[in-house]
Amino acid sequence: MPQIQIQGTSIVLIGNLNPAIFHPSWFAAHNLLRAEETDAAIINIVHPDVASFKIEWLEVNIVRERFQISTVQESYYEALRDIAVGILGLLSHTPIRLMGINRDFHFDLVSEDLWNVLGHRLVPKQDWNPLLKSPGMQNLVVQGVRPDDLKGYLRVTVQPSARIKYGVFIAVNDHYILKTDEKEADGADKARLILSEKWDESMKRGFDIAHAIVKSGEKG
């Protein structure tokens, strides 16, 4: 029975950011993280062009165009969302164009057979066999339109897991286009609303997609 061994969630914002402010102490000062947590932060770098640090459950990586926070601790998914909502509230005038709510899973498929069956199911080999000797799926990316009326797309990536022998890695990118015109100013507001209103839906969708993919392998 395939099981999730490792899973993570991340929130990515694309826009114009000021990495220098994202020092762990800033998060503590604004009550986004506990002071004890930020005191123990491992700071990679905080610079006008990049901020990168990590606490027990959270990794923060920010460059001028990209903001990314992630966790692999399932108990902190909602806390992750709250941090993003908090930051977007504090920096409500920051131009944010795009947002991704991402779920990542490493499933253990237990046996080499099941692992290959899923690979063959997702990328049938009959057309590849004449072209390549022993073809194997390395990276499958499929994109679909959003199931709701928001702008964006859903993109699913499937790869062999680099963490688990006979494991599969599945990433679901729930991508939101917040503004298409540079003059639009409320990207941060939109992102905050989506995170507040659509989070559960997005998390469930990612989970359901990943499970459906893994289950499809059981059908052979």
Partner: peptide
């Protein structure tokens, strides 16, 4: 413009 973290290794 890709907001996926796209990391097999989170």
């Amino acid at each position: 413009d890709v907001t996926s973290s796209h990391a097999e290794d989170v």
